[in-house]
């Protein structure tokens, strides 16, 4: 069954997978500090500000990132002229922005609770959320980001060969399952090496809370 499968294409898929990783890392990197800022602002005593933040967080939490992908694609221009310099806003940038919104929505609440002393930072939740955003990054294929899903579909379409489909999708599934395992192992190693110091410094709660599941499929 696999005799005729061109395994060289796996390398192309792995290259495309770097887009998924980059989207997930950047969405977390952009979303986390903004959510910290919003979380901090929510602890201030200005009622009007708290009310506005509540609406903003509610929107960020409840508008699906899949809808936001299209929103950013159709509304945000593809290039901006800022002080004479042209800034191109590629589909990749739009995907990063769209996927950073659920990060902000979820973590602004978490940071608020941490700052109020009601909970602790959980690396397990962070890891889980990263995996969720990584999986959600595949939806960027619908706006033209050449990530792994788009590349796999483009490959199948270019071959015009139905018998190729299942094998190609199986390879993509395998890449996601293995990468999920790798992420789990990396976090486990990080936990073993630095967990105690990190936990002591940041009141890090190693327990996986029930609410962690709220991160599942939050796309």
């Amino acid at each position: 069954m696999w005799n005729e499968f061109p395994f060289s294409v796996v390398q192309i898929f792995l290259d495309a997978f770097t887009y998924n990783l980059a989207i997930a890392v950047l969405a977390m990197a952009i979303g986390s500090p903004i959510s910290f800022l919003l979380g901090y602002m929510s602890t201030l005593s200005n009622k009007l500000l708290i009310f506005a933040l509540k609406i903003l967080k509610s929107l960020f939490c409840n508008v699906p990132s899949f809808v936001l992908l299209f929103y950013f694609t159709l509304i945000v221009p593809s290039q901006l002229d800022v002080l004479g310099a042209i800034w191109f806003i590629t589909p990749f940038t739009k995907a990063v922005l769209a996927l950073s919104i659920p990060v902000i929505g979820y973590y602004s609440d978490v940071f608020e609770q941490i700052l109020r002393g009601k909970t602790h930072f959980s690396l397990a939740t962070f890891k889980q959320f990263f995996i969720v955003i990584l999986m959600a990054s595949t939806t960027a294929s619908v706006i033209g980001v050449p990530e792994i899903m788009a590349t796999a579909n483009a490959y199948i379409a270019s071959k015009g060969d139905v018998s190729m489909m299942l094998k190609v999708y199986f390879v993509v599934v395998l890449i996601f399952v293995i990468s999920g395992l790798c992420i789990q192992i990396l976090f486990y190693i990080f936990n073993r090496m630095y967990g105690f110091t990190f936990a002591k410094k940041y009141s890090w709660n190693r327990e996986e809370e029930d609410e962690n599941s709220a991160t599942n499929s939050s796309n």
Binding site: T139, Y169, V177
Partner: peptide, 22 residues
């Protein structure tokens, strides 16, 4: 557990385009 680590959109493509024809 394995299913949870596969993106839903990939599962959709896999079943609709990949598995159904078989």
């Amino acid at each position: 557990s394995v299913q949870s680590s596969i993106p839903p959109i990939l599962m959709l493509y896999l079943v609709y385009f990949g598995a159904l024809p078989y």
